[in-house]
Design a protein around this nucleic acid. Structure first.
Length: 367
DNA sequence: CTAATTTGACCTAG
DNA sequence: CTAGGTCAAATTAG
């Protein structure tokens, strides 16, 4: 256990350090003479670093019961976690017995939205698989939306009382955009949430091999008869955007994260073993840490940290939220990444204790 | 056979 | 009252 923690810490430090240096690089490029691309590139890298770091903090620190008030994201995340700490847990208990109580709690549950864009355009789209087993329990036509919304809950709801649920809906006009809203956290012990390392036993898609399998259940529209075959989507061009939202609160605006999993540049690599399974464990603040087994968590860390890595800024375009209707109150600060990221991330930076003493020349990075 | 999905009824919040 | 979310019986898939 400590081993993984150590590794994690190192990764964290490494990421932060990198972010710091990148920021310095960026400062060099602030002069108008610098190329915009260079700046974009740096920005993207910085964001990626922070994102990764934050995620690590989320899991590692929190599980270890260490309410680090570090960064904005963490903070905001944390807040929803505590917004209904025991209610979620007790709910599950009560749920079985009290039955209809669910409706009430619905409101208090933390949730966050992940926007998945599949740029493949091959016609076969499917939401990314987050590594958990979901079971569809409902579908609803949503007002103003052309596509129905699918409701999923964790398969282990009964066996382990896992309350995690998610909703999947795809954008009206942009069929390539899926909005996945997660609710609650997984309290179950899933075999191997990270398909990257080990494919889940039940879904053994050998054809999807090394790539992260997105054998997501078909949460589809009725035009598609049976997408069972391959919902395999071309990864090279997936973009995932994650938004955190706390119900009712708007001050913890944490801008959406963009994970340009675009393999960009180097053509088709298999390098992009990305998954969008990151947010899974972000909200465990309120749950007993026991539900995560060391090994499980470890693999989680892995898949998560793998994601934003190759985000080279150049080919990057922010998958901004379709101005249409992104469900409720999704924080609309999507352009932050390209437009004014620093501003939004400002808090993060200072809280992380940016070391301003570092000399402005780092040979390490840049080009 | 078991497990997952479908689908309309039901329930709640706004 | 309406829209969104969930339940649960019926159906389908593995």
């Amino acid at each position: 256990m400590e081993k993984s923690m150590g590794r994690e810490n190192r990764t964290l430090i490494s990421e932060l350090t990198q972010g710091k240096e990148l920021a310095k690089q960026l400062s060099h490029h602030l002069s108008p003479s610098s190329s915009l691309e260079a700046r974009q590139f740096l920005l993207d890298k910085i964001l990626s670093s922070y994102e990764k770091s934050l995620s690590l903090l989320n899991w590692g620190a929190w599980v270890a019961d260490q309410p680090k008030p570090t960064v904005g994201i963490v903070d905001s995340t944390h807040s929803f976690a505590i917004s209904s700490p025991r209610s979620e847990v007790s709910d599950q208990d009560c749920k079985e017995e009290c039955g209809r109580d669910v409706y009430k709690k619905r409101k208090t549950q933390s949730r966050w939205t992940e926007q998945v864009k599949v740029c493949s355009g091959t016609g076969l789209e499917g939401p990314l698989d987050d590594g958990f087993s979901w079971r569809k329990y409902g579908q609803k036509d949503i007002l103003g939306a052309n596509f129905p919304r699918g409701y999923y809950r964790c398969t282990h709801r009964h066996s382990q009382g896992c309350l995690a649920t998610k909703q999947v809906q795809r954008s009206d006009e942009d069929r390539s955009i899926f909005e996945v809203t997660y609710r609650g956290r997984h309290t179950c012990n899933q075999a191997s949430p990270s398909p990257v390392a080990s494919p889940s036993p039940k879904n053994d898609f050998s054809k999807q091999s090394k790539y992260h399998c997105k054998q997501q259940q078909q949460q589809q529209n009725q035009d598609k008869p049976k997408p069972t075959e391959d919902i395999f989507v071309n990864f090279g061009s997936d973009c995932v955007q994650v938004k955190n939202e706390e119900l009712g609160s708007k001050d913890d605006i944490f801008p959406s994260f963009s994970f340009p999993c675009t393999s960009f540049g180097n053509g088709d690599e298999e390098n992009n073993i990305f998954t969008e399974s990151m947010m899974e464990n972000s909200f465990l603040g309120s749950f007993s840490p026991t539900f995560i087994s060391p090994e499980t968590s470890e693999s989680n860390y892995f898949s998560m940290s793998a994601c934003p890595l190759n985000s080279f800024g150049i080919g990057y375009q922010n998958v901004q939220t379709p101005e249409s209707e992104l469900t409720t109150e999704i924080i609309s600060a999507p352009t932050s990444v390209t437009n004014s990221p620093i501003g939004d991330w400002d808090i993060s930076i200072e809280m992380v204790d940016f070391d301003t003493t570092f000399p402005f020349d780092n040979p390490d990075f840049f080009a």
